[in-house]
C-alpha cells in the first residue's frame, strides 16, 4: 500500500496499548510497528505476528555442533593419530565415545548458543553502532508508540481511533520530510 504519511500514537500504559492494538486491528487498519520499553505479554498475538523460528534454528545449530564434535573426535583420536592412552580403546569411535561425551555436549551447546545469538542479531539488523530507529526516546523508558502509515484520506479515522483508545499524544510524519 502506498502511504502518504506516518502516524504515531503514544501510549503510557501497556494494557491501554494492548486494547488499542486489538481495537485498531479490528477496524481493519494494519499496524506497522509497535515500540515498547519492555516485552508486553500478548502483544505479538494481538499484532498477529508469526511465531519466531529462532528456537528451531537453535536446534539445528546444536545438531551441527554435535556433528562437528563427532567428526572432530573421530578424526583426531581414531583416524588420524590413534594412540593408546591409559588403556582406553582407540580402535573405533563407538568404543571410545563415553570419554568424548563432555566434548560432544559442550560443542553442541557452544554452537547452538552462539549461532543462535548471531542469527538474532542478523535478523534484527543489529550491530555495534547501528542507528536506533525508535521514533521517541521515551519508548525505551516508559512510553509505548504505535506506528501506522496511512493514505491522506484515512488519516482522520486513525487519529480518531488513537484518541478513542486513550493515546497520550499523536504525531504526524511525512515519509519524505
Amino acid at each position: 500500500m502506498r502511504s502518504d504519511k506516518i502516524l504515531y500514537g503514544l501510549y503510557d500504559d501497556e494494557d491501554l496499548l494492548l486494547s488499542a492494538v486489538e481495537r485498531i486491528r479490528r477496524e481493519g487498519i494494519p499496524i506497522d510497528e509497535v515500540y515498547s520499553p519492555f516485552p508486553v505479554h500478548g502483544l505479538d498475538k494481538a499484532l498477529g505476528l508469526q511465531e519466531t523460528r529462532l528456537g528451531i534454528t537453535a536446534f539445528i545449530y546444536g545438531l551441527l555442533g554435535l556433528g562437528f564434535a563427532i567428526w572432530m573426535t573421530w578424526y583426531m583420536m581414531i583416524y588420524d593419530w590413534p594412540q593408546d592412552i591409559g588403556g582406553k580403546p582407540s580402535f573405533t569411535w563407538g568404543e571410545n565415545m563415553p570419554a568424548f561425551v563432555p566434548i560432544l555436549f559442550e560443542l553442541t551447546v557452544f554452537c547452538s548458543a552462539h549461532l543462535m545469538a548471531v542469527t538474532f542479531l542478523v535478523r534484527n539488523a543489529m550491530y555495534p553502532g547501528a542507528r536506533a530507529a525508535n521514533p521517541h526516546p521515551a519508548t525505551t523508558d516508559d512510553k509505548f508508540v504505535m506506528e501506522i502509515s496511512v493514505r491522506a484520506a484515512d488519516e482522520p479515522q486513525v487519529v480518531a481511533l488513537f484518541k478513542e483508545t486513550g493515546a497520550l499524544a499523536i504525531h504526524l510524519k511525512n515519509p519524505e520530510s
Partner: peptide
C-alpha cells in the same frame, strides 16, 4: 546495537 524495542524484536 541500535535496539529500538520493536514488537518483533521483543518476541
Amino acid at each position: 546495537f541500535g535496539w529500538a524495542g520493536r514488537a518483533k524484536h521483543w518476541q
